[in-house]
Design a protein around this nucleic acid. Structure first.
Lengths: 246, 246
DNA sequence: TACGATGTCTATATAACGTATACTCGCTCT
DNA sequence: AGAGCGAGTATACGTTATATAGACATCGTA
C-alpha cells in the first residue's frame, strides 16, 4: 500500500527500506487468498481489498492485472473448489455407488467452502474441473443406458440437491453466526422468537410444536435420504429402458 | 425528488405548484413497487432508489420510515410472494396430490418472481405466509403418519428441489439476457463457446456431444420428474411406518 | 556501463450503493 | 393562533468495483 504521507516531509530515514518490488503475484496465489478470505470471513467479506490485503502489502488494483474482473475471480474460485472433488478416472462397476460417492465428496467440499453453493448459480459452469465432473456423471449414466440428454437431467437433479442442501446449511450457519454462534443462549432466543411468531399466528399447531422442541435427522442424514430418493428414481428410469446387458 | 436548483435563483413562477405533501406511503405500496422493479429489471436493479422512483417523486430515504432497512424490505417481498401461492384450508384426501399441486403452484410463483429463489435462502423464513405454507405441508404429511420431524425433512427436500430448479432456470434466463436475449445467434455463439471449451479439453466426449446438439426434457418436465422421485421416496417412508388407518 | 522498454504495482478518481443524521415544511389539534 | 407531529428531503459518510494514468524496478541491448 505504502501511501504517501501528506503534510510532513518524509526523509529517507523515516521510511523503512521499501519492500521488494516485482513480487510477481499470480492467479493461483490470488485465488487461494480469495478462497481463504471467503472460507474464514464469509462471502460478503471477500472484497478485492480484503483479498489484496491477505496477499500482503497490495492495493486492490494489483489484482486486476491477473483476473480482470471480480466475476473472473469468482469463476476461478469455483473451479478451484470443484478441483478438490476427487474424480475416478473411470466409472466403476456400481453406477449408484459412483454417483453416491461423488455426491458425498461434493457435499464435503461445500462443507469446506460454504460460499460455493451461493456462487455456483451466478456464473456459467464452464470451468474445466466443473466440466470434467459433469462428464464423469454423464459417463456413469450413459454407460447404464441413459441418453446423454437424460443423463444431463439426472445430473442436474443430483446437483440441485447437493447445492440446495449446502445453501440451506450454510444459511443456517450464517444466521447462527450473525446472532452469536458461540452463545447457545442466543440461538435459543432466536428460536424462541420464531416460536412466538408461530404461536402468535394461532393456526400453526405442527410448526409451533416443532419450534417448542425442535428435533429431526441431522443435515447429513437429510442429505443422504434425499440423495437416496433421487438415485432410486433414476434407477427406475434406467432399468426401464436398459434392457440390454451391462 | 425536487432537488434545489444550484446556481440560478428560482422564482416561484419557474416552479410548478409543489406536489401534494403527506402522500402517506405505506408498506404495501413499497413492497409492490419493489417486487415490480425486481420482476422487470432484475434483482440487481432493485435498489432503494429505483423503488422510490417507481413510487413517484420520492427520495430513497423516504422508504426508511416504513421498512427500516433493505433486508426488512426483502423479508416483506418474500412473504408477499409466498402469499401468492394458493393454499387449501385443509389437506385433501390425496397427500401426494396436495404436495404436488403445492409444489407446482410454488414453481409458478417463482416463474413470476425469479428473484425469489435467490433471496429465500438469505433470510430466516419467518414470514407468516411462508410459515402457513410450511404448516400445510406438515399437516398433509403428519396426517399420513409421519412425525413432525420427518415431515420437516420431507418438506425441506421438496422446497430444495423447487428453489433449486427456480435458481437454475432464473440463472439461465439471466445469462441469456445478459448476452443478448432477443438475438438467438448470440445464444448460439455462447453455446458454441462452451462447446469449444469442452472440445478443447479433449476428454469430454459426452459433454462435447451434447453441446454440439443440446436436447432434453424441458425445465418443466425436469421439474416434475424430480418431484416425482422425491414423492415416491417419501411415499415409501410413509407406508413403512403408517400401519394405522387413514 | 548507460538506456530505453517492459511489466508490476500504486495513486487517484468515479459512480453507485445502503443508510445515519439533521433538516424543512405542511397538516392537525388544541 | 400556535405548538407539535409526521412525512419526506438534503446531505454526508463509508463501502463497493473498477477505469485511468503514472511511478519505478528490472531486464535486454548497446
Amino acid at each position: 500500500m505504502r501511501k504517501s504521507t501528506p503534510g510532513g516531509i518524509d526523509l529517507i530515514w523515516t521510511q523503512p527500506p521499501p519492500p521488494p518490488r516485482q513480487r510477481a503475484l499470480g492467479r493461483d496465489e490470488i485465488v487461494t487468498a480469495a478462497i481463504g478470505v471467503a472460507d474464514e470471513s464469509g462471502l460478503d467479506a471477500m472484497t478485492m481489498k480484503a483479498v489484496a490485503a491477505r496477499l500482503g502489502d497490495y492495493t486492490p488494483m494489483a489484482l486486476y492485472r491477473y483476473v480482470h474482473n471480480k466475476d473472473g475471480l469468482v469463476d476461478l474460485m469455483l473451479d478451484a473448489a470443484a478441483a478438490e472433488i476427487p474424480l475416478p478416472a473411470q466409472p466403476g462397476p456400481d453406477w449408484r455407488e459412483d454417483l453416491r460417492t461423488l455426491a458425498m465428496d461434493s457435499r464435503r467440499m461445500i462443507g469446506r467452502h460454504p460460499w460455493f453453493a451461493r456462487l455456483v448459480h451466478t456464473r456459467p459452469p464452464a470451468g474445466p474441473h466443473m466440466m470434467r465432473r459433469l462428464e464423469f456423471m454423464l459417463a456413469v449414466l450413459t454407460r447404464r443406458g441413459a441418453t446423454v440428454a437424460a443423463a444431463m437431467t439426472y445430473a442436474a437433479l443430483i446437483d440441485r440437491h447437493i447445492t440446495g442442501s449446502g445453501l440451506q446449511e450454510a444459511e443456517e450457519a450464517r444466521i447462527e453466526r450473525r446472532y452469536g454462534l458461540d452463545d447457545s443462549a442466543k440461538l435459543f432466543a432466536a428460536l424462541a422468537t420464531l416460536h412466538e411468531l408461530a404461536a402468535a399466528d394461532g393456526g400453526l399447531p405442527h410448526l409451533t410444536g416443532w419450534f417448542a422442541q425442535p428435533s429431526g435427522p441431522t443435515p447429513a442424514e437429510q442429505f443422504t435420504l434425499g440423495l437416496g430418493f433421487l438415485l432410486d428414481g433414476i434407477a427406475g428410469r434406467l432399468s426401464s429402458h436398459a434392457a440390454d446387458g451391462v
